[in-house]
């Protein structure tokens, strides 16, 4: 392992974007930063700007309007980048699979490194997926 990827694994910053989910997953993503789960143990932080982010955390099925946004945000992120899809929504569309405004799943538009199944998954599962994704760096 090179020095650069060693450091990259030590402090990845997250960016969270909701592409139309019910909020269930979004609050579980936020719940990963609270004292009980505390992802800072792994050096991770949730940040507000795509330009600072290493990992994009996507929740929700992809709606027509959010599709362009998510692609743009993905393009704005610096290389190397990773995408983690949280919940059944970005993986398959969940209950919204046949809604007229949903164009998902996410991997039709951007490459996805890890999926977390569940509706919503527990914060532990989300952390597990993030750590697993980092192992691939």
């Amino acid at each position: 392992m090179g020095l650069v990827s060693f450091f990259r694994r030590k402090s990845p910053w997250l960016l969270h974007f909701d592409t139309g989910g019910c909020n269930g997953c979004s609050i579980e993503v936020v719940a990963t930063i609270i004292p009980r789960h505390d992802i800072e143990r792994f050096g991770m932080q949730v940040r507000g700007s795509p330009r600072h982010a290493d990992i994009l955390v996507v929740t929700g099925p992809i709606t027509k309007q959010a599709k362009d946004r998510i692609i743009r945000i993905y393009e704005q992120m610096p290389e190397p980048k990773m995408v983690v899809a949280v919940g059944s929504c970005p993986a398959s569309g969940c209950v919204f699979y046949d809604c007229y405004n949903v164009v998902g799943p996410l991997d039709k538009f951007i490459p996805v490194n890890a999926y977390v199944p569940g509706c919503p998954p527990k914060p532990e599962a989300i952390i597990f997926a993030l750590v697993k994704a980092l192992e691939k760096v």
Binding site: G20, T63, Q65
Partner: peptide, 8 residues
């Protein structure tokens, strides 16, 4: 941005 078409 997150209109999904649930009523339909």
């Amino acid at each position: 941005y997150i209109h999904r078409g649930i009523e339909r």
